[in-house]
Design a protein around this nucleic acid. Structure first.
Lengths: 153, 153
DNA sequence: TATAAGATGCATCTCACATATATCTTATTG
DNA sequence: CAATAAGATATATGTGAGATGCATCTTATA
């Protein structure tokens, strides 16, 4: 019952971008803001790009921004897109060999529970995660390598 | 977002026992019924014993049975007992270093989702998982090494 | 006292996940 | 148009939790 760091990082990237929507951030900037691996983050961002959560621009002056407003990105959608394996137990899989799977109701119950899980997550958007955007951005830019501080409101 | 096979096997053991409550089953019997490793199952059963879900009896003629009626064992309680790590993302942990964790609401949202998940699982008991006990037991005893078939109703 | 059970500790295997390295492509800017 | 700064992509490797196996100990029963 855990999420991968891919999900963790994905959400952090979206929050970062959501905290300052007009700003086009680079991967390097975000990685150093959180103190995490730039290489690793690149994969995460690439995935977010392919799945339509962020817009990426190559080349000098490039970077990323949210593909849609933060309040239009549901947490549940992000998790569903990033996590791949929701086969909670063997009987969810095609190669299931459990011999009671046709009379047992476990699969159905677990699926119901998972639906309830996502129903909650889909009630929240990236915008909801960031209490006060300025606060968050100030926090993120309080570090050596970042560019200008978020002075303007 | 997956459960370990420990949970899977734990529930299968409880279902097996719940399907024929008066019968004291051995680990060997259950393992061969499902076609899974006896060694591995032994650990699972040991855990279930320590956590009070089953009563184990050593020695010749020993075996296991449910410690309480199947309809008094909630699925959610089993999962909670068997799975150990519900720290969905870094900020759930004590050694959290994410620098926005104090203004970010992710942790709270994920916790809510997890609660919803267990609220569903706690609505179901082991008894609910087994549609027709006789059916299930017939299915499970249809194999070489098992003792007498479940003829009686 | 032999045997059939579970209890326990240790060893190992294995794969998903995490991380790193290197090279390619694209866009901008001087 | 060349240099550079960005992301894209493929490959390699590390690593730890989870899964499995093996051997031995303990306990109860016949």
């Amino acid at each position: 019952m855990r999420l991968t760091v891919m999900s963790d990082y994905s959400l952090r990237v979206l929050m970062y971008l959501g905290a300052k929507p007009e700003h086009r951030a680079t991967i390097q900037e975000i990685a150093s803001a959180y103190g995490i691996s730039e290489n690793h983050l690149m994969k995460v961002v690439h995935g977010l790009g392919r799945q339509g959560f962020v817009e990426t621009v190559r080349g000098r002056g490039g970077g990323l921004r949210l593909a849609r407003p933060a309040d239009k990105i549901k947490i549940g959608d992000v998790i569903k897109a990033v996590e791949d394996d929701f086969a909670l137990v063997e009987c969810f899989r095609d190669e299931n060999v459990c011999r009671i799977s046709n009379v047992c109701r476990l699969r159905g119950v677990l699926r119901l529970a998972l639906e309830a899980y996502f129903r909650v997550l889909d009630d929240w958007t990236v915008a909801d995660l960031v209490t006060t955007p300025t606060n968050l951005f100030a926090l993120l830019s309080d570090l050596p390598s970042s560019s200008e501080p978020a002075t303007r409101r």
